[in-house]
Design a protein around this nucleic acid. Structure first.
Lengths: 246, 246
DNA sequence: CGAACGCTTGATGGCCATCAATCTCTGTGG
DNA sequence: CCACAGAGATTGATGGCCATCAAGCGTTCG
C-alpha cells in the first residue's frame, strides 16, 4: 500500500519516479526541490491567462489543471499527482491557457526555467529522465484525447481509473488492488467530458458488475484483470523507469 | 499566401517558426535538419507499438499521428505541419503509442536524441525556443482535449480550422483568409471525435452560414471575425515567437 | 439547525452515430 | 475510348448514448 512507501514519497516522489538511485542524482533533484511550500485548496497555482513564468514540482497531494468554458462548464486537462511537473507550459509560452488548482492541500517546489537548464547541463542522464516524465505526462493527455474521442462513458471511466492507479503505483501510492482517491464524481465528470449524473450511473454500473468500486475516497479494483481486458487497457506507456536502463 | 514565403518554408520551417534570425542559430538548425529525405503516403514513420528510438522534424508536407481502436475506428492525436517535431515520445519512452503516417508526400529530417542534447548544450536560447515549440504542440493537443470534452461538433470544427490556420500562418503557409488543406472529411472526423457523416453536415452548415468554406483542398474563412467570436476562439497560445524576445 | 457539498435516481429530450443510398471525380485496364 | 472500381462527398431516416432537468438523500460544518 501507500503506507510502507510513504517515506520515499515524502522525501522526493520525483526521484522515486525516475528511479534515481545514486546519491549524486538524488542530491541534484533534492536541490531542484529545495524551497518547498504548502498550498491550500483555495489558492490557484497558475491562473488561466496569467503570464508569470513559474513552474512547480508537486511533492505531495493532488491537483488539477483545467479550463473554464464561457458557459460555466469545465474541462479538466490533467490530474496531477506527486512527482508531476506543473506549469511547464506557462514557463515556456507567453501565457498559460489553464488554471492549476490543488484538489487536496499540497506541497510544491517552485522551480525556475534556469534551474532546469542547469540540471540539463550537469547531468544528461537526469535530463533525459526528466524529459521522459514530461513525455509520459503528454502521453497521458493524448490517451485521454483518445478516450474522449472514441470511447464510451463506461470505457472512459475504466481507463481513467486504471491509468490513475498505474501512475500512482509509479510513485509508490496504491497498487493493483486500489488506491486512495480524493476526487469527487464532479472531478471525474469534468476530466472525462461527461455529466456528473451520467458519471454516477457508470460508477454504479462498474460496481454492480463487480469490476470496480469508488466509495468514500477509495478506489478498489474488484476484478482488475477482467476490467482491463473488457475495456482494452494497455499500460505500455506507463512502464516504470530506471535511470541508465532506459 | 503561402507562395511568397515558400522559400523560407523549403529551407527551414523550424527556423522560421522559432524566429531564428542570426546566421549562427540558423546554422545550428540547419545542421539539425541535415539528411532530409522524402517519405511517401504509404509508409508509416512511426508505428504503434514500435520501440525504435527515432524522431523527425517535418520539413514539408502534412502528416498525422493517430491510434487505431480495436473496433477499427481511429482517433487522430495531432495533425503535423511543417516545422513540427514528430516522435519525441518514442525517442524518450519505451514504445510509441501511436502511428505517424504522412497525409501528403513529405520531407523529414531524422534526428537523434543526442543531436537535441547537443543543441541544448550549444545554445540555451535555441534550446528554450525548441522546448517552446514542443510546448505549443502540447498546448494544441490540450486544446483539442477541451474541444472533445466540452464543445459541440460545430464548435469543434470551427476551432480546429481556426487553429490550423493560425499554426500554418506561423510557418508562412496561408493567412487569415484561408489555407490549402489536404485533409479529407474523414481526417477531420477522426481528429474531432465525430463521424464523417456528421462532419459533412457541419461543414455544410458553416458554408451556408457564410462562415467558412472547405472545398477542393482549400479552406476559406468567409467571415473569420464573426466565426471567432461565435465559437470563442482564443489564439493566445499561438503567438509567433522571437528568439531573445520571449 | 440550516446551508453547502457530494451522491443518487427517475424522466425527458437532443445531439450525433449509424445505416443506407446516391453522386462526382479520378485513375486504371480492357 | 469506355467500363469499372475506388475514394471522397453528400443527403435522408432511424435510433441510442448521454445531457439536462428535477428531486431527494446523507454528511459536514459554521
Amino acid at each position: 500500500m501507500g503506507e510502507k512507501n510513504s517515506h520515499m514519497v515524502d522525501e522526493s516522489p520525483l526521484a522515486f519516479r525516475i528511479g534515481a538511485r545514486r546519491e549524486e542524482e538524488k542530491a541534484i533533484i533534492e536541490r531542484l526541490c529545495r524551497g518547498r511550500r504548502p498550498v491550500g485548496t483555495q489558492t490557484d497555482l497558475i491562473y488561466q491567462g496569467q503570464s508569470v513564468r513559474r513552474g512547480y514540482i508537486l511533492i505531495s497531494g493532488w491537483a488539477s489543471s483545467y479550463k473554464m468554458m464561457p458557459d460555466g462548464s469545465r474541462q479538466i486537462i490533467d490530474i496531477r499527482i506527486p512527482g508531476d511537473f506543473m506549469g511547464l507550459q506557462s514557463m515556456l509560452l507567453r501565457r498559460s491557457g489553464y488554471t492549476t488548482r490543488p484538489i487536496t492541500d499540497i506541497q510544491v517546489a517552485e522551480i525556475q526555467l534556469d534551474d532546469l537548464f542547469e540540471v540539463f547541463a550537469c547531468s544528461p542522464e537526469l535530463a533525459r529522465a526528466i524529459l521522459r516524465t514530461v513525455s509520459q505526462d503528454g502521453a497521458a493527455i493524448a490517451e485521454r484525447l483518445v478516450s474522449l474521442g472514441r470511447r464510451t462513458a463506461f470505457e472512459r471511466v475504466a481507463h481513467f481509473m486504471l491509468e490513475l492507479g498505474a501512475r500512482l503505483a509509479l510513485v509508490g501510492q496504491g497498487d493493483e488492488t486500489g488506491f486512495a482517491c480524493p476526487l469527487t464524481q464532479y472531478h471525474l465528470a469534468d476530466a472525462l467530458g461527461l455529466s456528473a449524473v451520467h458519471t454516477n450511473r457508470i460508477i454504479r454500473q462498474l460496481r454492480v458488475q463487480g469490476m470496480m468500486t469508488f466509495r468514500d475516497g477509495y478506489v478498489t479494483f474488484d476484478s482488475r484483470d477482467r476490467l482491463i481486458s473488457l475495456v482494452g487497457f494497455d499500460p505500455a506507456h506507463l512502464q516504470p523507469m530506471h535511470i541508465n536502463h532506459p
